[in-house]
Computed example of a mutant assay.
Amino acid sequence: MYLIVIAWTYVTLMMAVAEATSPQGTVLGALITFALYGLLPMSILVYILGTPSRKRKIKAREAAEQAAYDAEQAAIVQQQAPDAGSAEPDAGREAATAAEGSAVTPVRKEP
Rank of each mutant, 00 (worst) to 15 (best):
S53H: 12
Q73P: 00
A16I: 04
E100K: 05
A16F: 09
R54G: 05
A60F: 12
A18S: 12
M14N: 12
P41K: 14
A64S: 15
Q24H: 11
P89I: 02
T105G: 13
T9S: 06
V27S: 10
R61V: 13
A75E: 12
I44W: 15
V46S: 12
Y10M: 12
K109I: 09
P106N: 04
S43C: 13
V104R: 06
A75C: 00
A84Q: 08
E88D: 04
L31T: 07
G29D: 06
A68L: 13
Q73H: 03
E100H: 01
A16N: 03
A84T: 03
I76N: 00
T9I: 06
R54D: 07
A75P: 01
R61W: 15
A99Q: 14
M42D: 02
T21F: 14
A103G: 11
G101A: 08
I32S: 07
T51M: 15
K59T: 05
W8M: 06
T97I: 07
P23H: 01
E88Y: 03
T9E: 04
V11D: 00
S86M: 09
G38T: 01
S22G: 12
R108S: 10
T9A: 07
Q80C: 10
G29S: 15
I58L: 15
Q79C: 05
P52F: 14
Y47G: 02
I6E: 04
A16T: 05
A20E: 01
M15T: 01
E72H: 09
P89G: 02
A18T: 08
V5C: 09
A87H: 08
G101F: 07
R56N: 02
R93Q: 03
